[in-house]
């Protein structure tokens, strides 16, 4: 069969290309161009707002991978991810299972309450939480002391040992509602006759969920984990408003590190946009690598 020339194929599909054009232009402007420029900037010794920018090849990358604080922030980002995602997945699932029960009359109310932090501005939550966890008259400490769990107030955000778990806890609370919604959506794809059949076969309670429902919703779990993992690596506004990465870098994740080097710091020296871009590109590639790994895992799981 004679194949049409490419120009003819394009002409025949001209309307499709026309409709794709606006999206392509916007993607090019706001996604492709910034990514390309950040790669280019990462090869420069540049403050970001002077005319002078010197091409230095891969020197910024070399400096980044030689910097202890870069790797500390890098590892801390993954600690944050591994510390929050499993908790959100498990908690979200448990809550979704309870709230998916049609018998529970107050399910819509609880769904709303749990979802409410999701729609609250993250910067507001960050600032409010600094007061909640304040050792001086903060409600968290007042509560702990009232039940005699601690005799002295705990400096949740000022103690290097407690700051990251505290921010992680706030993160889980803030975004738990969205994980719950993902699970609810997944659970609602399970047909009612599956429940009925399981009951007839004598599968109830824990066994019903482990052996019948979970295998059905497992493909959703992979997607949820993927979305949650990428989300947990993007926590800049919460950390910046709650701790700005402190004390002494204890809560500095990669995004805060990049921000700190891209702008004038408290120390009062010039910013280093070129270096920050190198750190950002490195970080972006690392996140992409993880996403690809998860994609491969998802494909493998589907085959199983």
């Amino acid at each position: 069969m004679h194949k049409k020339p490419l120009s003819k194929q394009i002409y025949d599909a001209r309307w499709c290309y026309l409709f794709v054009l606006p999206c392509s232009i916007l993607t090019g402007m706001f996604v492709i161009y910034p990514i390309g420029m950040s790669w280019y900037f990462s090869l420069l010794d540049w403050t970001g707002f002077t005319k002078e920018a010197k091409f230095i090849g891969l020197q910024n990358y070399y400096e980044a991978v030689s910097d202890k604080f870069f790797w500390d922030a890098f590892i801390r980002s993954f600690i944050f991810m591994f510390g929050t995602v499993p908790v959100k997945i498990v908690l979200g699932f448990i809550i979704a299972v309870f709230l998916n029960n049609q018998v529970l009359k107050l399910a819509p109310f609880f769904r709303t309450v749990i979802f409410m932090p999701v729609v609250t501005a993250i910067a507001i939550i960050g600032i409010v939480m600094t007061f909640v966890f304040s050792p001086f008259n903060g409600p968290a400490n007042k509560f702990l002391m009232s039940i005699n769990l601690t005799s002295a107030p705990i400096d949740f955000l000022g103690n290097p040992d407690t700051v990251l778990p505290t921010v992680m806890g706030v993160y889980v609370w803030k975004w738990l509602g969205i994980t719950m919604m993902y699970w609810l959506a997944a659970l609602q794809t399970v047909p009612q006759d599956v429940y009925d059949a399981a009951k007839i076969d004598g599968a109830e309670g824990f066994r019903l969920w482990i052996h019948i429902i979970l295998p059905i919703v497992l493909p959703f779990a992979i997607v949820i984990i993927l979305v949650e993992a990428v989300g947990a690596l993007n926590v800049f506004p919460l950390i910046e408003t709650m701790t700005a990465g402190g004390p002494f870098f204890s809560s500095e994740v990669m995004e805060v590190y990049i921000f700190r080097t891209a702008f004038v710091t408290d120390s009062g020296t010039m910013p280093r946009l070129g270096y920050a871009c190198a750190a950002g590109v490195f970080w972006g590639v690392a996140v992409l690598f993880i996403t690809v790994l998860q994609g491969l895992w998802m494909r493998r799981t589907r085959r199983i």
Partner: peptide, 8 residues
């Protein structure tokens, strides 16, 4: 020292 100086 006032408790919580590191978080203010």
């Amino acid at each position: 020292a006032f408790p919580g100086v590191m978080s203010m």
